[in-house]
Design a protein around this nucleic acid. Structure first.
Length: 260
DNA sequence: ATGTCACTTTACAAGTGA
């Protein structure tokens, strides 16, 4: 079983690269974030032609998530009970194969101390409460998505520069730990050990990718039955290269998780 | 820190969010 999670920053702009990624990695399940499109304009035909059933939860211009599977989707749920900002499309989940997959796009938060930052922390808490009330950590479940948090200093390119700032602040990191405490393992960190990264995001500005200024903010968090099946986790960094593939890159690269 | 991108609009440049 192979899963990919990828913040595509507009599925309309990124469709050729998504189709090429599918040919390269042949994932069973794909979690997309920042699709930025209403459901009726989602490229369902092209992805069905590629072999995937599609559950999309989108909106115009902002946010938007989608869950694609070539092993079937059952019990699809759109959003979550208790969402403090229910007008924003950020979570879609379903049963696929033997897994419950929860595709999430966490609030960015803009900057520490802003209203958006408060919304981010409130959203993360409400999401955790819903998860705990709805699912059982003894079951095979994985949360995949753009979490917009680098869990610790190994997940930022310059820990001193990033200390305390948005995406790396202690309250954000505590929110990830609270999710893990419910019964989830950070599969990317489990695979990498103490090696920094692997980064999944490089800012578009300042030549960040070329300079290695990356962050690991796209995560796959699995319950114990999933963590026990972990074979490998890798990042397809080629997808972040401007010269690779068709059209411009997203600012995120796909995270590929393979389970036994 | 700042070599960007995508989207939207009493649109054809500028604001917003990332």
């Amino acid at each position: 079983m192979r899963l990919v999670t990828w913040n595509v920053n507009s599925i309309k702009q990124r469709l050729p690269r998504v189709l090429a990624m599918i040919r390269r990695h042949e994932p069973d399940v794909i979690c997309l974030q920042e699709t930025k499109v209403e459901d009726q304009l989602f490229p369902t035909m092209e992805l069905v032609a590629a072999g995937y059933e599609c559950a999309m939860f989108g909106q115009r211009a902002y946010n938007g998530v989608a869950l694609l599977s070539r092993v079937g989707l059952k019990d699809v749920r759109y959003g979550f009970d208790g969402d403090p900002i229910p007008g924003q499309a950020r979570v879609v989940s379903a049963q696929t194969g033997d897994l419950r997959v929860v595709c999430i796009y966490v609030v960015n938060g803009q900057a520490v101390g802003t209203p958006a930052y408060g919304t981010k922390l409130a959203w993360l808490d409400a999401f955790r409460v819903w998860m705990a009330a709805t699912f059982d950590p003894a079951d095979p479940l994985v949360i995949c998505g753009d979490v917009n948090i680098a869990p610790d200093d190994r997940d930022v390119w310059d820990p001193v520069l990033w200390r305390g700032s948005i995406l790396a602040s202690e309250p954000e990191r505590a929110a990830v730990r609270a999710l893990e405490a419910w019964g989830l393992t950070d599969l990317g960190r489990a695979a990498a050990g103490d090696v920094p990264g692997p980064f999944t995001f490089w800012d578009y500005t300042a030549g960040a990718f070329h300079k290695g200024w990356g962050l690991r903010i796209d995560l796959a968090l699995g319950t114990a039955p999933v963590a026990d099946r972990l074979e490998s986790v890798m990042v397809d960094r080629d997808e972040r290269k401007p010269t690779y593939g068709e059209g411009k890159p997203s600012d995120h690269a796909p995270l590929i998780v393979t389970l036994l």
